[in-house]
Design a binder for these strands. Structure first.
Lengths: 276, 276
DNA sequence: GCAAACGATACCCGCAAGGTATTGAACGGC
DNA sequence: GCCGTTCAATACCTTGCGGGTATCGTTTGC
């Protein structure tokens, strides 16, 4: 199977529409139809069930979508890492969610910088769920992920810390005076909606948010409330209040890296992290 | 980057010889030279340092070899799993080294077969180091691996059991009467040589072996001695003797599976295994 | 100093990838 | 129920690229 065919397939599978997929790919629709047909013939597998009005994935198609994405990511990662190896820039690239692990990250960077033979570390702060992409496609060497939110599927990981969660509300909020609140009490309230793995937002009442800064501003404006890990406290604005939520799931911070690529520098960073 | 280019590159990197690589690929040498040149230009990276007499990998080339193999495996796995998903054969394929885990495996298969909703399990017995390939390229769904011999890089794993190792010698061997023997005593003796990840054998005095049956026969013929996990005892021929080697590294059996692909059936098998 | 080995270059050919025009089937509006 | 719209498939053409043969230039071993 060729990468081009797979890219075409993934695009069609995402759009479920040959015209739009062809647009996205920058080619005309007929060649795309043909390419998919060819792929199906070569695999001997029907990937889509098509009427002249609709396109749907078959079960086998769903498998190819999942596995194919992983394969394309691996391909892209190979390319990126090769380029980086060539340009001699031996910097490590660490990616994490903006606003998360705000205490742990500087400690880690300082401790690693103090190690003998430490290389410079570039930090990428990105929105939620983008860090996985960065790590998978080779733009980053290592990430700080947060369970149970992020998926560590396909990465090697080490646990770094675990913490409880807090309810964040504006100063005048009815719950702001409470010493504790339980998840069941929050069940009906509109919680912010984070983008999924594919960049789209789940349906629901709460506002759409991409990062912590957005979220905190919305809370200050009384448009949202949220449950966040305790470590977010250090960068809360003055006019927000926190209430412990003892029964919220505990959040574990892990350091994650792609298998295969354990450079000496990366290994040292991981060792430093686990010793903090 | 296209899969074809990458396959070409990997072949040349393996052969370090354009002519032989072209032969293996079934194309002529000039197009191969061109393809590699194109790849280098597109990546903007020198992958080989060539004189007109020799070819060697650059550092970046070594990165691409490692990462590229992983990417090609992922591609092949995607194709295989798609085909299997289509033909509706929902069988699980388990792979393990012939002769290893001879006690654990039947227990696992029996226990799983008794589970509600169990699907048939095909068992592949292969030589050492082939199981990794099977799991990486989608021919198998799950493997029993043995640490510290096998690499679990890139797989998800669960530990199943751990055991010591025994020295295996023919009946008349000088060490056969001992109650215990240490690794240092065995240091000078010619141990069998197993094939590496790439199928070639390391240099050294001992005989080359591919699987346990070969090895045991060689031991019976007094051409070799070996240190093996305790569980091999159940399939030892009559005329061999065992001596405990307390300071040999302990062997851990793990069940391993590729990330991404956790079917219901696979999950059930893993659950069964960890409960044994 | 010559022949062999080996990668690079030059040049040609065929096919498959991509484009345009069109067909044909399924909805939706009236 | 008919027509216009939508959207995938088909037909047909063009071209660029992947592959082949012949050859060159450099290194190396005898």
């Amino acid at each position: 199977m060729e990468a081009r065919e797979l890219r075409y397939f993934v695009t069609v599978a995402e759009e479920l529409h040959f015209g739009r997929a062809a647009d996205r790919l920058g080619i005309a629709q007929p060649p795309l139809s043909r390419a998919i047909g060819q792929l199906e013939r070569r695999l001997g597998v029907e990937l889509f069930t098509r009427t002249s009005r609709s396109v749907a994935l078959t079960e086998a198609g769903a498998v190819l979508l999942r596995e194919g994405r992983a394969a394309l990511d691996a391909l892209e990662a190979a390319e990126r890492r090769t380029r980086r190896a060539a340009t001699g820039t031996s910097n490590l690239v660490l990616v994490t969610k903006a606003g998360a692990s705000s205490e742990l990250l500087p400690k880690l960077l300082d401790a690693y910088a103090a190690e003998p033979g430490a290389v410079p570390v570039d930090v990428i702060l990105c929105g939620v769920a983008e860090q996985e992409r960065h790590l998978r496609d080779g733009r980053a060497d290592v990430a700080l992920l947060h369970l149970p939110f992020d998926s560590t599927v396909g990465f090697d990981t080490e646990e770094l810390s675990t913490e409880g969660q807090l309810l964040i509300v504006p100063a005048g909020h009815p719950l702001s005076g409470r010493t504790s609140v339980s998840m069941t009490e929050l069940a009906g309230l509109p919680m912010p909606r984070w983008p999924g793995r594919d960049g789209t937002y789940p349906p629901g009442p709460g506002p759409e948010v991409r990062d912590n800064a957005q979220l905190l501003q919305l809370i200050a404006l009384d448009r949202a409330i949220a449950v966040l890990p305790e470590s977010c406290r250090s960068l809360l604005p003055y006019d927000l209040r926190t209430v412990p939520v003892p029964d919220a799931p505990r959040v574990t911070t892990v350091i994650a890296w792609p298998p295969h690529s354990r450079s000496r520098a990366l290994a040292a960073l991981i060792r430093t992290a686990t010793r903090l």
